[in-house]
Every structure is written in structure tokens, then in C-alpha cells.
Amino acid sequence: MELLKIENLHATIDGKEILRGINLNINAGETHAIMGPNGSGKSTLSAVLAGNPAYTVTEGSVRFNGKDLLGLTPEDRAHEGLFLSFQYPVEIPGVSMTNFMRAAVNEKRRYQGLAPLSSGDFLKLMRQKKQIIDIDANLTNRAVNEGFSGGEKKKNEIFQMAMLEPTLRILDETDSGLDIDALRVCADGVNRLKQPDNATIVITHYQRLLDYIVPDFIHILYRGRIVMTGGKELALELEEKGYDWIKKQFQD
């Protein structure tokens, strides 16, 4: 089943074109890795899919669950099942994790025509999901990401993913700033939450994360376009030859 279909996607920020014609199809059950040198547009792609208003789509289309994704607000994209794990999770002082998650879960339920969860049921759900990612119980009593270490922030992203049960999980450089233990915990969480009806996009600069979250396809993004697609062995080739190999080949 086709979950996401990106056609000829162009996007700019501050008038500068970053995405220059992306084409990508993703089916339920698949894991796709997007790799590429710095500045190739990897994070821009994830931001545009999530609806970050800082970027402007100038051309192309994106279908998600058969719907026009680009016509939806960021919150409705989330309600439709899109989840972006941020490269730099945002600190929100004064808003507790509990209130934040309760609002997120209940707004999604409202979108689906369901009644909000009772306080008791919500706390039960939090407890249950905390176990998946092995997140410190105290973290959920604190303000969103405030004073969290790099590892705690990334774990918190996966915890939120567990709470929201998305169908399309986009991991934007989840490995950056993580030590090997935290990396393993995050990857385990992503793998345990894998379902036949959901799909994953792993955006990464390095091959390391792909040892833990094994992709079905690897796409190499360079200068705003996917210039090469292959199986998981492509990551090893990149690791060996470096991005210069790509740069030389696809210099415009």
C-alpha cells in the first residue's frame, strides 16, 4: 500500500531553493534511509513534510494516505499519522510533558472523532509507553525538554512517537549528539514500534544508525535531488568512498 508519494518537490527558504525536484514513493512496512552530505537538503525535506512554515513549497506535490499533504496544517499532518522526530527537539519552559502530551493525544482523538481520554486512562497510557523507551519517570514531570541532556531529548522524541502511534515516522538525524548506548535505546524503540502498516524515513549523515535500524532502501540526496537509490549495501559503499565520490559524479 502506498503511504507517501512525493513528486517533483521544490522548496525554498528565504528565497533560496533547497529542494530541487524530489521524487520518492514509500509503501507501508518499508524503511527508507536518506543520506547525503551536509547542506544537501535532508533536514529541509523533513521540515517541508512536517509543514514548517519557514519553508515555501514552490512546485510539486505530496500525497499522504491519498490526501494532499501540502494542503494540511502541521497539526493535521500529525493527526493523519505523520511524525517528525526533531534533530534539535525544542525546549518549552513552563509547559509540563504531561500537559503537552495530553493536549497532543486528545487533539488527535478529537480529529478522529473520539472522546478525550480521562485523566486516569491518559496517565496509564503514559506509564505503558514509558516502558517501551525506558525513559526516566521524572522526565515526564518536567517541562518539555527543558534541561534535558542530548540523549534524554532524543529518547523523549521516541517516547512521543510511542504515544502518538504514527504511520509515517521521520527520524531527522536522531543519531546526532547521541552516545552509543542512547543510540541503541532509541533505535530499539523505533524497531519495537514498527508495524506492517507504518513506514519509516531515517535521515542520517552516517552509516552507524543504519546498523540498528536496517533500511530497505537508501537514497542519496545531493543538491536538493535524489541522485542515487540502492539497497542497504549502499551505506557501506558510502562509508568506504565518502561523499566526495557522489559530489564528483553529480557536480552540475
Binding site: A54, E75, R77, F83, L84, V90, I92, F100, A103, E107
Partner: peptide, 16 residues
């Protein structure tokens, strides 16, 4: 703006 987008990306509507 970043805080607002982060919350929206989790499904929290702009008003809320």
C-alpha cells in the same frame, strides 16, 4: 516560532 511549530508538529492546534 520554533516552540509553536514543535507543538503543531505533535498535533496541537495553533490556538491551543
Amino acid at each position: 516560532a520554533e516552540q509553536l511549530f514543535y507543538m503543531q508538529a505533535r498535533g496541537i492546534g495553533l490556538d491551543q
